[in-house]
Design a protein around this nucleic acid. Structure first.
Lengths: 340, 340
DNA sequence: CTGAAAGCGCTTACAG
DNA sequence: CTGAAAGCGCTTACAG
């Protein structure tokens, strides 16, 4: 492997000049010299040694992509189609800017702080934050640029990109209300523990009140994650005397589980139960009937987060911003007018 | 941040001794010294500087996780539940061994070779190889440990972990044949271009011959990827005069598309068409009826690949091995006996 | 079992 | 616009 030193020798300049050419500091090198050096660089297929660069500059151009461990099975995080898509877009955006994504799953904030120092990581982005206490501790203790997706704390200076969850919950409920539903339920894991889910729930309540529909606490279900939670909830609903005619789930996978649970019991969807999901992820188009859901632009969210992260990396005073992206109702086949 | 030098000063030993303690070279340090150094290390929360380590040792403990870019939308790779799960397991295995995963999507072998040199990456693992020519070139030109999943070339020394695709195709076809089906079709993207898919197809043929069932070239469909390909194929099938009663798809998403396509046209699955998928990935349990599929142990595959990679990293003479993991039929609800 | 020294390949002030 | 020198924090032979 060729080094800067060898290139400098061949070009008859100092290593510093070669370094300046590589780093595009055109103000520090005459165009003629720069051109000559560039040619020699190309001729020898010079490849930068990032370890050496990191050691001397204290910046690695590594971006940490953080995925909390849910449950014990630490592979489950990327199983979520939303997480996979998000990581894919982030990788793409970083590659274009010549940054390098390292992925980490973690349970405790301390693990993240250690690895940041180990690699002098320039910035991190937290996807699908889980336990609020861990996330809060991480934000508090991090002394590097960190962008958090889908979570926001009032009491802490932080960089966050989220969606308008309350509006999402509202749009979902309104869709059902406009189709005549008055018995509408909500299913989510840990409604109180997650501010995001709680916001969706608040939006749901907003719409019910606007339309003068009753809230029935029996129709608010606490579920486990993913489709298992939805299937279980479907069974509970079908066993009730007084059932909701429409359900809103806090994520698509739970909504898919609802649909499956109802169908497995021999009832049709949406006729027996209208269902609305959240996220517009892959599974929403996979099932039959396809899922009406609250759509967000995952690519836009990724790009916004990356933009915010790079602003924070280049400007140490930029450490507080909250961006809230819009959501929309994606109407598919899992909702129908209520029948009398 | 504390450095080895400061630790050495406080312990009254040389930096080399501290380095040996950190790296666990117990043969080179007396137990008493080691213990004392370890205490000081802990007291100061010493964190290793990997850039310095990489620069001097030429080994980074970074493992490249390679995901080819499919289509133009480079986020789509991790959208695949199989890829997400695989990356999750790999990350877990690396974290335990104190290695670090960097992910890269790429279109050309050259990009991979460059980034390997840039970071002195110790080894790489290629997930979901796509174009055989790119994969072949990469294996040929790589001078570092590289494990390739789900692809094998006879003419090249390489490290690979795959599954018994031919047996999978056979098991799928036999399942239908044993239930009385004699009109069975096969759908996959680019049957000839991918050796993996071709093997599945060969297994399918094996079973047909064993049971004396006719092969009908009209029932072998070339499809685009993912569920769109399945839905389109379902429409084609339903428009045929002489239809298959059972279909085998080369991946679960295509099988899900088949199911959806048939259901959307108003016919029941499996009564109108029995469907078998491949991979036992998330969507197979998400849809109704749930998908009968060929199951593989993704975690075992990930662990096998990682094991092979580490053997190659520690032993430069270990550069050729092929492991083929077993598959099994996972019977769910998308297959029924043929009716006369 | 322990150490002094050289070196890995860059970048960063500092001078001119 | 260009350079000489120091230094980033480790590991690696080489000696003893």
């Amino acid at each position: 492997l060729v080094t800067i030193k060898e290139i400098a020798a061949e070009a008859g300049v100092s290593v510093m000049t070669v370094s300046n050419v590589i780093n595009g500091n055109s103000a520090r090198v005459s165009p003629a010299t720069a051109e000559r050096v560039r040619e020699i660089l190309q001729k020898h297929h010079y490849v930068r040694n990032m370890a050496a660069r990191t050691l001397s500059s204290r910046s690695s151009r590594i971006i940490g992509v953080l995925l909390p461990v849910w449950y014990e099975d630490s592979a489950s995080m990327l199983l979520d189609p939303y997480a996979g898509q998000m990581v894919g877009y982030i990788e793409e955006a970083l590659r274009i800017r010549q940054y390098y994504p390292m992925i980490f799953s973690f349970k405790k904030a301390e693990q993240v702080l250690t690895v940041q120092k180990t690699w002098q990581i320039d910035g991190m982005i937290l996807i699908m934050p889980h336990q609020d206490d861990v996330t809060h501790a991480l934000i508090e203790q991090s002394d590097f640029p960190l962008v958090v997706l889908d979570r926001y704390f009032e009491d802490l200076p932080m960089l966050s990109v989220g969606i308008d969850d309350r509006k999402g919950g509202y749009l979902a409920a309104r869709c059902l209300l406009e189709k005549g539903h008055r018995h509408i339920g909500f299913v989510a894991p840990a409604i109180q523990a997650s501010s995001v889910i709680h916001d969706r729930y608040l939006g749901f309540q907003d719409a019910l009140r606007e339309f003068g529909a009753d809230e029935n606490p029996d129709w608010v279900f606490d579920s486990v994650f993913h489709q298992e939670g939805g299937e279980e909830t479907a069974r509970k609903i079908l066993a009730m005397e007084s059932r909701p005619t429409g359900m809103i789930a806090s994520e698509d996978l739970i909504a898919c589980g609802l649909v499956r649970g109802v169908q497995e019991a021999g009832f049709p969807v949406p006729e027996a139960l209208s269902v609305i999901g959240f996220d517009d992820s892959l599974p929403s188009r996979l099932i039959s009937p396809s899922l009406t859901t609250i759509g967000q632009d995952i690519r836009e969210k990724a790009m916004t987060a990356i933009g915010m992260l790079f602003q924070a990396i280049s400007d140490p005073s930029f450490r507080v911003q909250r961006k809230v992206l819009d959501v929309r109702l994606v109407e598919r086949q899992s909702v129908c007018p209520v029948r009398r």
